[in-house]
Amino acid sequence: MARHPLTLVAASLGARPFLESEALPGVRIPGQLIGIGENYWPDGPRPAAGRIPLVFGKFPGSLAGDGQPIVLDPVIAGTVVCEGELAVVVGRLLKDAHSPEEALKAIAGVTVANDVSARDLQAADIQSTRGKSLDTFCPLGPELVTLDELPELQSLSIVTRINGAVVQDSTTASMVFSVAELMMFCSRFMTLYPGDVILTGTPFAPDESVLELQPGDTVSVEVGGVGLLTNPVAARVPSDRMARV
Protein backbone atom coordinates (compact mmCIF):
# COMPACT_ATOMS: atom_id res chain seq x y z
CA MET A 1 0.00 0.00 0.00
CA ALA A 2 1.47 3.32 -1.04
CA ARG A 3 1.26 6.40 -3.17
CA HIS A 4 1.37 5.67 -6.89
CA PRO A 5 2.15 8.26 -9.60
CA LEU A 6 -0.58 8.74 -12.20
CA THR A 7 1.18 8.85 -15.55
CA LEU A 8 -0.49 10.57 -18.47
CA VAL A 9 -0.28 8.62 -21.71
CA ALA A 10 -0.31 11.37 -24.32
CA ALA A 11 -2.78 10.77 -27.09
CA SER A 12 -1.84 10.76 -30.72
CA LEU A 13 -4.38 12.23 -33.09
CA GLY A 14 -7.40 9.96 -33.10
CA ALA A 15 -6.60 8.38 -29.71
CA ARG A 16 -7.99 9.41 -26.34
CA PRO A 17 -5.55 10.27 -23.52
CA PHE A 18 -5.56 8.18 -20.36
CA LEU A 19 -3.73 7.74 -17.06
CA GLU A 20 -1.81 4.69 -15.92
CA SER A 21 -0.97 3.56 -12.39
CA GLU A 22 1.06 0.62 -11.16
CA ALA A 23 -1.71 0.13 -8.58
CA LEU A 24 -4.01 -0.94 -11.44
CA PRO A 25 -1.77 -2.60 -14.03
CA GLY A 26 -3.25 -2.68 -17.50
CA VAL A 27 -6.22 -0.47 -16.54
CA ARG A 28 -6.91 2.83 -18.31
CA ILE A 29 -8.00 5.68 -16.05
CA PRO A 30 -10.65 7.00 -16.32
CA GLY A 31 -13.04 4.37 -17.63
CA GLN A 32 -16.45 5.73 -16.77
CA LEU A 33 -16.16 9.29 -15.44
CA ILE A 34 -18.97 10.10 -13.02
CA GLY A 35 -19.65 13.51 -11.54
CA ILE A 36 -21.60 14.41 -8.41
CA GLY A 37 -23.26 17.81 -8.11
CA GLU A 38 -24.39 19.89 -5.15
CA ASN A 39 -22.69 17.64 -2.58
CA TYR A 40 -21.50 20.30 -0.14
CA TRP A 41 -23.55 22.34 2.30
CA PRO A 42 -22.62 26.03 2.58
CA ASP A 43 -22.35 25.91 6.40
CA GLY A 44 -21.36 22.32 7.04
CA PRO A 45 -23.07 18.93 6.70
CA ARG A 46 -26.82 18.59 7.13
CA PRO A 47 -29.09 15.54 7.10
CA ALA A 48 -29.86 14.50 3.55
CA ALA A 49 -33.40 13.32 4.31
CA GLY A 50 -35.37 12.76 1.14
CA ARG A 51 -32.44 13.59 -1.11
CA ILE A 52 -30.39 11.45 -3.43
CA PRO A 53 -27.03 12.28 -5.00
CA LEU A 54 -27.15 14.41 -8.15
CA VAL A 55 -25.26 12.38 -10.78
CA PHE A 56 -24.02 13.56 -14.18
CA GLY A 57 -21.71 12.20 -16.84
CA LYS A 58 -18.37 13.69 -17.78
CA PHE A 59 -16.86 12.17 -20.91
CA PRO A 60 -13.41 10.54 -20.45
CA GLY A 61 -11.98 12.60 -23.32
CA SER A 62 -12.03 15.60 -20.99
CA LEU A 63 -9.00 14.20 -19.13
CA ALA A 64 -5.93 16.31 -18.49
CA GLY A 65 -2.86 15.46 -16.41
CA ASP A 66 -1.03 17.40 -13.74
CA GLY A 67 0.76 20.32 -15.38
CA GLN A 68 -1.14 20.02 -18.67
CA PRO A 69 -2.93 23.17 -19.87
CA ILE A 70 -6.66 23.61 -19.47
CA VAL A 71 -7.54 24.96 -22.92
CA LEU A 72 -10.34 27.50 -23.26
CA ASP A 73 -12.26 28.51 -26.36
CA PRO A 74 -14.35 31.53 -25.26
CA VAL A 75 -16.42 31.46 -28.45
CA ILE A 76 -17.69 27.96 -27.59
CA ALA A 77 -17.45 27.75 -23.83
CA GLY A 78 -18.22 31.25 -22.54
CA THR A 79 -17.78 31.52 -18.77
CA VAL A 80 -15.58 28.71 -17.40
CA VAL A 81 -15.05 27.98 -13.71
CA CYS A 82 -12.81 25.65 -11.71
CA GLU A 83 -14.15 23.19 -9.13
CA GLY A 84 -11.69 21.50 -6.79
CA GLU A 85 -12.69 17.97 -5.77
CA LEU A 86 -11.65 14.69 -4.23
CA ALA A 87 -11.75 11.94 -6.87
CA VAL A 88 -12.23 8.24 -6.15
CA VAL A 89 -10.71 5.58 -8.44
CA VAL A 90 -12.45 2.21 -8.47
CA GLY A 91 -10.14 -0.80 -8.07
CA ARG A 92 -12.49 -3.77 -8.31
CA LEU A 93 -15.87 -4.63 -9.75
CA LEU A 94 -18.70 -3.27 -7.61
CA LYS A 95 -22.42 -3.89 -8.08
CA ASP A 96 -25.26 -3.45 -5.57
CA ALA A 97 -23.05 -2.59 -2.60
CA HIS A 98 -25.13 -2.66 0.57
CA SER A 99 -22.65 -1.54 3.20
CA PRO A 100 -20.06 1.21 3.51
CA GLU A 101 -17.40 -1.42 4.20
CA GLU A 102 -18.15 -3.22 0.94
CA ALA A 103 -18.08 0.05 -1.00
CA LEU A 104 -14.80 1.26 0.47
CA LYS A 105 -13.07 -2.06 -0.23
CA ALA A 106 -13.69 -1.47 -3.95
CA ILE A 107 -11.64 1.74 -3.96
CA ALA A 108 -8.12 1.51 -5.42
CA GLY A 109 -7.30 4.95 -4.11
CA VAL A 110 -8.13 8.62 -4.30
CA THR A 111 -6.63 11.54 -6.16
CA VAL A 112 -7.21 15.24 -6.82
CA ALA A 113 -9.57 16.53 -9.49
CA ASN A 114 -10.59 19.81 -11.06
CA ASP A 115 -14.11 19.57 -12.48
CA VAL A 116 -13.73 22.45 -14.95
CA SER A 117 -17.17 23.61 -16.10
CA ALA A 118 -18.54 25.82 -18.89
CA ARG A 119 -21.49 27.48 -17.18
CA ASP A 120 -23.04 28.93 -20.36
CA LEU A 121 -23.25 25.48 -21.93
CA GLN A 122 -24.76 24.02 -18.78
CA ALA A 123 -27.40 26.75 -18.76
CA ALA A 124 -28.16 26.30 -22.46
CA ASP A 125 -28.59 22.53 -22.12
CA ILE A 126 -30.33 22.57 -18.70
CA GLN A 127 -27.96 19.74 -17.72
CA SER A 128 -24.26 19.36 -17.15
CA THR A 129 -22.66 16.80 -19.46
CA ARG A 130 -21.63 18.96 -22.44
CA GLY A 131 -20.45 21.88 -20.32
CA LYS A 132 -18.22 19.58 -18.25
CA SER A 133 -16.87 17.39 -21.04
CA LEU A 134 -14.81 19.72 -23.22
CA ASP A 135 -11.26 18.56 -23.92
CA THR A 136 -8.91 19.17 -20.93
CA PHE A 137 -11.84 19.95 -18.60
CA CYS A 138 -10.99 17.16 -16.14
CA PRO A 139 -7.48 17.44 -14.72
CA LEU A 140 -6.64 14.47 -12.45
CA GLY A 141 -3.56 13.61 -10.42
CA PRO A 142 -0.76 13.67 -9.63
CA GLU A 143 -0.86 10.50 -7.47
CA LEU A 144 -3.21 7.68 -6.58
CA VAL A 145 -3.21 7.44 -2.79
CA THR A 146 -4.43 4.25 -1.11
CA LEU A 147 -6.87 4.59 1.78
CA ASP A 148 -4.42 3.25 4.36
CA GLU A 149 -2.37 6.41 3.77
CA LEU A 150 -5.27 8.60 4.92
CA PRO A 151 -6.63 8.95 8.46
CA GLU A 152 -10.24 9.57 7.44
CA LEU A 153 -11.81 10.26 4.02
CA GLN A 154 -14.38 12.60 5.53
CA SER A 155 -11.96 15.03 7.12
CA LEU A 156 -9.71 16.05 4.22
CA SER A 157 -9.09 19.71 3.45
CA ILE A 158 -9.81 21.00 -0.08
CA VAL A 159 -8.22 24.29 -1.14
CA THR A 160 -8.40 25.73 -4.66
CA ARG A 161 -6.22 28.64 -5.75
CA ILE A 162 -6.12 30.80 -8.87
CA ASN A 163 -2.78 32.59 -9.32
CA GLY A 164 -2.05 31.86 -5.66
CA ALA A 165 -5.27 33.38 -4.31
CA VAL A 166 -7.57 31.04 -2.37
CA VAL A 167 -10.98 30.73 -4.05
CA GLN A 168 -12.25 27.57 -2.30
CA ASP A 169 -11.43 26.42 1.24
CA SER A 170 -13.41 23.59 2.79
CA THR A 171 -13.20 19.98 3.96
CA THR A 172 -14.83 16.71 2.97
CA ALA A 173 -16.60 16.83 6.33
CA SER A 174 -19.05 19.20 4.63
CA MET A 175 -20.18 16.59 2.09
CA VAL A 176 -23.90 15.86 2.00
CA PHE A 177 -23.18 12.27 0.94
CA SER A 178 -19.99 10.56 2.04
CA VAL A 179 -17.62 8.75 -0.30
CA ALA A 180 -19.01 5.38 0.82
CA GLU A 181 -22.59 6.54 0.28
CA LEU A 182 -21.76 7.76 -3.22
CA MET A 183 -20.10 4.45 -4.09
CA MET A 184 -23.11 2.52 -2.80
CA PHE A 185 -25.59 4.72 -4.65
CA CYS A 186 -23.79 4.51 -7.99
CA SER A 187 -23.28 0.76 -7.70
CA ARG A 188 -27.02 0.21 -7.37
CA PHE A 189 -27.92 1.62 -10.79
CA MET A 190 -24.71 0.79 -12.66
CA THR A 191 -21.75 -1.57 -12.43
CA LEU A 192 -18.55 0.12 -11.38
CA TYR A 193 -15.41 -1.24 -13.05
CA PRO A 194 -11.69 -0.92 -12.26
CA GLY A 195 -10.47 2.45 -13.51
CA ASP A 196 -13.82 4.20 -13.18
CA VAL A 197 -13.59 7.58 -11.47
CA ILE A 198 -16.16 9.32 -9.28
CA LEU A 199 -15.73 13.06 -8.70
CA THR A 200 -17.29 13.58 -5.28
CA GLY A 201 -18.43 17.20 -5.60
CA THR A 202 -16.99 20.64 -5.03
CA PRO A 203 -17.25 22.96 -2.01
CA PHE A 204 -20.05 25.53 -2.11
CA ALA A 205 -19.09 28.96 -3.45
CA PRO A 206 -21.43 31.86 -2.60
CA ASP A 207 -19.86 33.99 -5.36
CA GLU A 208 -18.87 31.91 -8.38
CA SER A 209 -17.18 34.85 -10.08
CA VAL A 210 -14.04 34.13 -8.04
CA LEU A 211 -13.83 30.69 -9.70
CA GLU A 212 -13.72 32.00 -13.28
CA LEU A 213 -10.71 31.01 -15.35
CA GLN A 214 -8.94 33.12 -17.95
CA PRO A 215 -6.05 32.33 -20.30
CA GLY A 216 -2.80 33.02 -18.48
CA ASP A 217 -4.11 31.88 -15.10
CA THR A 218 -2.66 29.04 -13.05
CA VAL A 219 -5.15 26.99 -11.06
CA SER A 220 -4.24 24.53 -8.32
CA VAL A 221 -6.30 22.17 -6.18
CA GLU A 222 -4.84 20.76 -2.98
CA VAL A 223 -6.47 17.95 -1.01
CA GLY A 224 -4.87 17.37 2.37
CA GLY A 225 -2.85 14.16 2.48
CA VAL A 226 -3.66 13.43 -1.17
CA GLY A 227 -1.72 15.91 -3.26
CA LEU A 228 -1.49 19.12 -5.24
CA LEU A 229 -2.83 19.32 -8.80
CA THR A 230 -1.68 22.33 -10.81
CA ASN A 231 -2.63 23.37 -14.35
CA PRO A 232 -1.98 26.47 -16.43
CA VAL A 233 -4.89 27.91 -18.40
CA ALA A 234 -4.42 28.62 -22.10
CA ALA A 235 -6.47 29.88 -25.02
CA ARG A 236 -7.13 27.57 -27.93
CA VAL A 237 -5.33 28.48 -31.13
CA PRO A 238 -6.47 27.17 -34.55
CA SER A 239 -3.39 24.97 -34.99
CA ASP A 240 -4.01 23.21 -31.65
CA ARG A 241 -6.09 20.38 -33.06
CA MET A 242 -6.14 18.35 -29.83
CA ALA A 243 -7.84 21.26 -28.00
CA ARG A 244 -10.79 21.60 -30.38
CA VAL A 245 -14.21 21.01 -28.85
Rank of each mutant, 00 (worst) to 15 (best):
C138K: 01
F59R: 00
L13M: 10
A234Q: 11
L213G: 11
N39M: 12
P100H: 09
D66Q: 09
L19S: 04
R119M: 04
A118Q: 04
A235G: 13
N39E: 15
T218N: 09
P206I: 12
V179F: 03
G37C: 02
S62K: 00
S187V: 08
G44I: 13
T146E: 11
L211P: 08
A124W: 01
T200A: 09
V27P: 06
E83H: 02
I162G: 13
A49E: 12
L104I: 11
M184L: 01
G225F: 06
A180C: 07
A77P: 13
V9H: 10
D43I: 05
G109D: 05
E38R: 03
I107D: 08
P17R: 06
I198C: 13
G35P: 11
P42D: 00
L153E: 03
A180V: 08
A106N: 09
S239D: 10
T129R: 03
C186S: 13
R188I: 09
W41T: 05
I126V: 15
T172W: 12
G14A: 13
P232R: 03
S21T: 05
F189H: 14
D240G: 10
V197T: 07
M175T: 14
G195R: 03
V75R: 02
V233S: 10
R236C: 15
F185G: 03
E222N: 11
L228W: 12
D96M: 14
A113I: 11
F177V: 12
V233A: 12
G57S: 15
A106R: 08
Q168M: 07
P142E: 04
M1N: 08
S157G: 12
L6W: 01
V112T: 11
G84C: 15
Q68F: 06
D240S: 08
E149L: 08
L150A: 14
E143Y: 11
P142S: 02
S133E: 00
D207R: 01
W41A: 13
V233H: 05
L6T: 06
A23M: 02
G91S: 04
A234P: 10
L147W: 04
R130H: 14
P42H: 00
V116W: 05
L156A: 05
T202Q: 13
Q127G: 15
I70G: 08
A11T: 04
P17I: 02
C82W: 04
S187I: 06
L86M: 02
G216M: 11
G141P: 04
L54N: 12
R51V: 09
T146C: 10
T171L: 10
G31A: 11
P100I: 07
M190Q: 10
S62M: 00
A87N: 02
G195Y: 03
L104F: 08
Q122S: 05
R16T: 12
S157V: 07
D135E: 13
A103E: 07
F56C: 01
M184V: 02
G37M: 02
R51K: 07
P5Y: 01
V210P: 15
L229V: 04
G78S: 07
H4T: 09
